[in-house]
Structures are given as structure tokens and as C-alpha cells.
């Protein structure tokens, strides 16, 4: 046995259980991707169902709503990348600057808590406050003669309501990973720069942010893998007939046309389409990151 294998053997051994997990629970089931290309019937199984090739993809691209779905999906994701993605980083940076330990723990716990409030409740509270007639805030506005703010029904607000609720629920939670990354920054760097007379702002810029760079890049690349994905439940709860032109996305579409009728081939085809777009986007962003001297995800 040569030196490499002697050294590598324990490492492969560490990877082995995880490797087996991926094979058994992730790769064997990949056979299921073929459901997108057959007229799948659970009783005939994958091998017994009729091969239809790209039929379901053609059906998807021919949907009258296809472009609307694509546009809504991409716009919401874009908003999310631009506004939601930096929010947890900002929270982490702010918390990192707090020296009072109790205050820090308290604020962090409060910001983390909304993650455990389900969408049903969050949307419910928003409606309670902003329902056109009975909403608490709308009644106040009405008393001031400002008329109702049709936050839940006017389509122009939909995306922003969705985004703000995302930030409200997820910013504190998302900060955790960046706080963990901050903990790996060598504290002697700060000491040295303080001695050099650098102020706090410069320290954030020259030490803290570079220390986070790795994680930010990875999270950013991975985010693009889900550029076509949106949480179903949140959007579904916010959806109503008035805002459907801006709120219908692939998830809600598939729920209404495919899942209820057990049309698995179609849902699988839509899922596969989304994954392929995600893969292309990640590949592209990953290359960009590597070209800029960063470590990519693969």
C-alpha cells in the first residue's frame, strides 16, 4: 500500500457512511426522474408506463400562463436575492458589533423567534391588520380619512408584502450561519488593527467582511440553485383572485393542475425543468466566482 492510500484510507472511511446515504436515499431514487418522460401510472410502475418523451415539457411550454409563471417566479426570486439575501448578513454584522453580552443574546433570540411562527399565522396576522374593511391599521387610516390601504388585494403590493414577511421571518434565523463564520475569524487581527488606530467601521470593512467572504460566496452560489423555487405555502396563503396575475408561480400552478389529480408525470416534469434551470444558473455563478478567485461549490 503506497503512502497516499495509507493516508487517505481513514478519510475515505469517514466519508463512507455519508456516501452510502447518498447512494441509497438520493441516487437510487433518481430513477424517479424518468417519471417526467412517461405517462406514469402508479400501478404500472416506471417500467410498465408508456414512454411519452418530451410530451409534458411541451405541454408546460405551451401553457397559456407559462410566461407569466416564469416572470413571476424569476421576479420574486430576484427580489429575494437582492433584498432578502443581504439581510441576515447585516444582522450578523450588527450583532457582531455588540459588546454587551446580555443585550446580544436577548436581541438575537428575539430575531430568531419568528422562524417558528408558521406562515398561516404570519399571513393571518397581516390580514388582521390590513384587511380592507376590518383590518386594525386600515380602520385607523380610515379614521384619519386616508382611505383603506388595500395591502392584501391590490396586486402592486403583493411582492413587497411577500418579501417583507420573508425578511421578518427569516433574517434573524439566517444570521446564524454568518455568526458561526464570524467566530472563525482570528481575534488577534482585531487587536492588531486597533493598535494601528483603525476605527470600528474600517475593521468591519477590512477584517469582518473578508472573514465572511467564503461563506457569503457559497451561500450566494447555492441560492442560485433555487432560482426557480419558491415556498409553496407562503405564496398560496397570500394568493387571492385579485393578485393572481402577479402571485401565480410554478408551485401554485402545479398544486392546482397536477397534484390534486395525481398527475405525477406533469409535476415531475415541471420540477425537472426548474432543477435544470437551477443547475445552469449555479454552474454560471460558480464559474464567475472561480474566475474572481473564490472557491466554488464544486
Amino acid at each position: 500500500m503506497n503512502a497516499y492510500w495509507k493516508r487517505a484510507f481513514p478519510i475515505y472511511f469517514m466519508i463512507l457512511p455519508g456516501f452510502l446515504f447518498f447512494i441509497i436515499f438520493k441516487y437510487i431514487p433518481m430513477i424517479g426522474i424518468s417519471i417526467a418522460f412517461i405517462d406514469y401510472s402508479p400501478f404500472k410502475g416506471i417500467t410498465g408506463s408508456e414512454w411519452v418523451g418530451l410530451h409534458y415539457f411541451r405541454r408546460l411550454f405551451a401553457e397559456g400562463d407559462f410566461l407569466v409563471l416564469l416572470k413571476n417566479t424569476l421576479l420574486l426570486n430576484l427580489l429575494d436575492v437582492v433584498f432578502f439575501f443581504p439581510a441576515p448578513i447585516l444582522v450578523a454584522l450588527l450583532l457582531n458589533e455588540v459588546r454587551a453580552k446580555r443585550f446580544k443574546t436577548a436581541v438575537q433570540t428575539i430575531l430568531y423567534a419568528p422562524n417558528f411562527i408558521s406562515w398561516v399565522v404570519i399571513v393571518g396576522i397581516t390580514i388582521l391588520l390590513f384587511a380592507t374593511g376590518s383590518g386594525g391599521i386600515n380602520q385607523i387610516l380610515d379614521n384619519w380619512g386616508l382611505g383603506p390601504l388595500e395591502l392584501m388585494t391590490d396586486p402592486q403590493y403583493f411582492r413587497w408584502v411577500w418579501l417583507l414577511q420573508n425578511i421578518w421571518q427569516g433574517a434573524g434565523w439566517g444570521a446564524i450561519i454568518f455568526l458561526a463564520a464570524l467566530s472563525t475569524i482570528d481575534p488577534t487581527l482585531y487587536e492588531a488593527s486597533t493598535m494601528d488606530g483603525a476605527n470600528r467601521w474600517r475593521q468591519v470593512w477590512h477584517i469582518t467582511l473578508p472573514g465572511l467572504r467564503n461563506v457569503i460566496v457559497i451561500m450566494f452560489i447555492l441560492r442560485f440553485g433555487h432560482i426557480m423555487d419558491l415556498g409553496f405555502e407562503h405564496i398560496f396563503l397570500l394568493q387571492n383572485p385579485m393578485n393572481q396575475d402577479v402571485s401565480k408561480v410554478f408551485e401554485t400552478f402545479i398544486y392546482k393542475t397536477g397534484l390534486i389529480q395525481g398527475d405525477y408525470s406533469y409535476s415531475t416534469a415541471v420540477g425537472l425543468f426548474k432543477s435544470v434551470v437551477g443547475l445552469v444558473m449555479v454552474w454560471f455563478v460558480n464559474r464567475l466566482a472561480k474566475r474572481m478567485g473564490q472557491e466554488g461549490v464544486f
Binding site: 430513477i31 424517479g32 416506471i46 405525477y264
Partner: peptide
């Protein structure tokens, strides 16, 4: 690494996983 990453995007869905 790619094997791990790939499963982030592609999955066989719940039916084959259930069968496994």
C-alpha cells in the same frame, strides 16, 4: 463534492424514495 451538490438540485421525488 459534485455528487453531494447534484442532489441539492435534483431529486427522484417522493415515490421512488418511499419505495426505497
Amino acid at each position: 463534492n459534485f455528487m453531494v451538490f447534484f442532489t441539492l438540485l435534483f431529486s427522484g421525488g417522493m415515490i421512488p424514495t418511499y419505495l426505497v
